[in-house]
Simulated scan of single mutants.
Amino acid sequence: MELVSSINDLSFKSKTAVTIGNFDGVHIGHKELINLTTKIASEKNLKSLVFTFENHPIEFLYNKKIERLTSPARKKEIIKELGIDEIVSVEFNYDIKNMTTEEFSQKILINALNASDVIMGFDSRLGNGKEGKVEYLYEVGKKMGFNVHIVDQVLVDNMRVSSSYIREMLKHGEVKRVKHFLGRDYEISGVVVHGKKIGRVLGFPTANIEQDYDVLLPQKGVYYCKVLVDGVYYDGATSVGDNPTVKDKGFSVETHLINFSGDIYGKNIKLFFLDRLRDEMKFRSLEDLKFQMNKDVLKIKNYIFT
């Protein structure tokens, strides 16, 4: 993988098959692009390449915060796991934004990436202005000597797979449904830090997670998670929210690991969200909270995957 500050620093000697995009979440629509890229590269003896951005173009253009589905580092890990040879990640800036389709094709696709084949999503844009639509890239490719392959939309339950739609599902706590769009369980990772230890008092010690990177969290509530600790998976009951029963607890992500014992503080762990158990609730007493936590854990132990 190459992170470059300038397109001028790039020069691939081998011919490449290139797919271009932000790839936040690396969902099943993105995987269609990547799989076609690796297939074409294999058939034509090319180097497979993903060209992506460190920052999000929408954040840059509109000063609007995008709630990421993956950290930049995790995004690159998933892409590499899908068999891509090289990832080029650059900062989206005004130089790129102001390029016409022809300029982008000459300066980046040909001069920098040595592209033989370019694989794009049906709704992608490549270049500034009305000619930036991906269909126009066909004509440019014919003139400049590279092939263009356009991948059609991917549907799940008659809904188009997109990062924005996945964000909306997460905001409604639909983590089980999200898996069908991502092709994997939604995940976060972070370091276990000290909390107020209320869970320990109740007999349900919890690991408080300080996220590595500010990715989008599901809607407040309690979730069934698989928790990866030191290479071992545990079942976990995970609370995302403000813990309204406990005064001054504040917002937190904390998980009770079932059948786990040991010191977990300072460890980096991963949480994979499998299903939503219930909404966040305010209980009349800690005893009522303890009773509900018993029910949550029992539900996880008896969970049947459907």
Rank of each mutant, 00 (worst) to 15 (best):
Val154Phe: 04
Lys282Ser: 01
Glu86Thr: 10
Ile78Gly: 06
Asn268Trp: 04
Leu298Asp: 14
Ile78Asn: 07
Glu102His: 10
Leu10Gln: 06
Thr16Arg: 07
Val201Thr: 14
Gly266His: 10
Leu46Pro: 00
Val50Ser: 03
Ile7Ala: 05
Phe53Gly: 05
Lys107Asn: 15
Gly141Ala: 02
Asn35Gln: 08
Asn128Cys: 08
Leu257Trp: 02
Tyr223His: 11
Val156Cys: 07
Val26His: 09
Glu103His: 05
Arg200Thr: 15
Lys226Cys: 06
Thr206Asp: 10
Gly231Ser: 11
Val240Asp: 10
Tyr186Asp: 06
Ser5Asp: 15
Glu67Pro: 00
Phe92Arg: 05
Ile58Tyr: 13
Val201Gln: 14
Val215Glu: 11
Gly83Phe: 02
Phe283Val: 05
Glu174Arg: 13
Thr306Met: 09
Asp242Glu: 15
Asp117Leu: 00
Lys226Trp: 12
Lys196Met: 15
Leu49Pro: 00
Ser163Arg: 03
Leu46Ala: 03
Phe104Val: 08
Ile269Trp: 05
Val161Tyr: 00
Phe283Ile: 08
Asp275Leu: 01
Gly121Met: 03
Ile28Val: 12
Thr101Ser: 15
Lys267Pro: 06
Val201Phe: 08
Lys142Pro: 07
Ile166Glu: 13
Pro72Ser: 02
Ala17Lys: 01
His172Trp: 00
Arg278Gly: 04
Asn8Met: 03
Arg74Thr: 11
Asn208Trp: 04
Lys220Pro: 06
Asp235Glu: 10
Ser48Asp: 03
Tyr213Val: 02
Val193Leu: 10
Lys143Gly: 01
Leu257Cys: 04
Gln106Ala: 09
Thr245Asp: 10
Arg200Leu: 14
His194Lys: 15
Glu168His: 12
Lys171Trp: 06
Ile34Gly: 01
Val193Pro: 10
Gln211Tyr: 03
Val215Gln: 09
Glu67Trp: 02
Asp296Phe: 08
Gly132Ala: 12
Tyr94Glu: 15
Lys247Tyr: 10
Met144Val: 09
Gln153Leu: 14
Gly231Trp: 06
Met99Thr: 08
Ser164Gln: 03
Phe51Lys: 00
Thr38Leu: 02
Ser105His: 11
Ile258Phe: 06
Val215Phe: 04
Phe12Thr: 01
Val222His: 14
Gly241Asp: 11
Asn268Cys: 10
Ile188Gly: 05
His27Leu: 05
Leu286Trp: 08
Asp9Glu: 15
Asn208Arg: 11
Ser6Gln: 11
Arg68Asp: 02
Ile84Phe: 02
Phe23His: 00
Thr206Met: 09
